[in-house]
């Protein structure tokens, strides 16, 4: 009996070997190379040191780029949560067929490429786009608003593009909440708002945190959407890295920026994770 069990276990580990090997070859190795590269003092190599990090961290412009990227993520995440929660809520409260329709609408963006989705936003936000055309048609504005190549446009487009990442965890979290809890709350005298605040919101916290985490990570690294909607003068970290690596061939600096970006993101992610663990602590009944 024991022998059989042990065999089964080792078999399982062997099955994981290709995955582990793939992980080492395609993830760990490049990361180590990246790290090594970031300590080169000049693009030609040779000397090692902290020059690149000093250059970045001592430069208010670079720090500004990092700050605005992290802040962009906060804005996108907040907007996505604000728009996504009602969608997930609606899904939860809808009859079966409507659930299917909402789910399809949520998933639909995932079935097209990010480039296509982003170009749709170019069309929507452009001078002759849907928004401007409607506002002009309604006589609310005289000249088209500048929406494309603005940060507001980037936030809006990113929020839509990343929406499934927020809504899906929320739907899962909400569907795990016993509907009797809301009923119980209301017969105990709580109105809708109190029920939401005291029962639904705290119990959906794991979903909110998971959704925020995914959205945040996706938003700040969304090179395509950031550059297509933001244009060439709005500099965020992914474009900054691309510029240094690709155009300027300054790989050590690009590597250092990447490492700093990675660390900054990891810090944010760990904060989310801690929050997540705290929230899961009391919601797993």
């Amino acid at each position: 009996m024991a022998a059989t069990l042990r065999n089964v276990t080792t078999y399982d580990l062997k099955l994981a070997a290709p995955l582990a090997a793939g992980f080492v070859v395609f993830f760990v190795t490049p990361l180590v190379i990246l790290l090594a590269l970031s300590f080169q003092t000049d693009p030609q190599g040779g000397h090692f040191g902290l020059t690149q990090y000093v250059n970045f961290l001592g430069d208010s412009f670079s720090l500004g780029v990092l700050g605005s990227t992290l802040w962009l993520g906060v804005k996108v995440t907040a907007l996505t949560l604000l728009l996504g929660y009602p969608v997930a809520w609606l899904h939860q409260r809808s009859p079966g067929w409507a659930k299917g329709v909402i789910m399809l609408l949520v998933l639909l963006p995932l079935l097209t490429s990010v480039v296509v989705r982003t170009f749709a936003w170019v069309v929507i936000l452009g001078r002759q786009g849907i928004v401007n055309a409607s506002l002009l048609g309604l006589g609310l504005i005289d000249t088209p608003l500048k929406l494309l190549y603005t940060e507001g446009g980037v936030v809006m487009a990113l929020a839509q593009v990343q929406m499934p990442l927020m809504v899906l965890p929320l739907i899962t979290a909400l569907s795990r909440i016993d509907p009797n809890l809301a009923d119980a709350s209301s017969v105990l005298g709580a109105g809708h708002w109190r029920t939401f605040r005291k029962v639904i919101l705290p119990l959906s916290l794991p979903g909110i945190i998971a959704g925020c985490l995914l959205t945040y990570a996706a938003a700040i690294t969304a090179f395509i959407t950031q550059s297509l909607i933001g244009g060439g003068q709005m500099l965020f970290m992914p474009m900054y890295i691309y510029q240094q690596a690709s155009t300027l061939q300054n790989w050590p600096f690009a590597a250092a920026i990447s490492v700093i970006f990675l660390v900054a993101v990891l810090v944010v992610v760990s904060i989310f994770n801690v929050l997540g663990r705290l929230s899961r602590g009391y919601t797993n009944a």
Binding site: F119, G126, R127, G129, L148, Y149, S227, L228, G231, Q233
Partner: peptide, 17 residues
């Protein structure tokens, strides 16, 4: 607009931007 690459200029013309 300041496009991120020449390809974007094409899009901007198409969109009347």
């Amino acid at each position: 607009a300041v496009a991120a690459n020449p390809g974007q200029l094409a899009t901007l013309f198409q969109q009347g931007q």
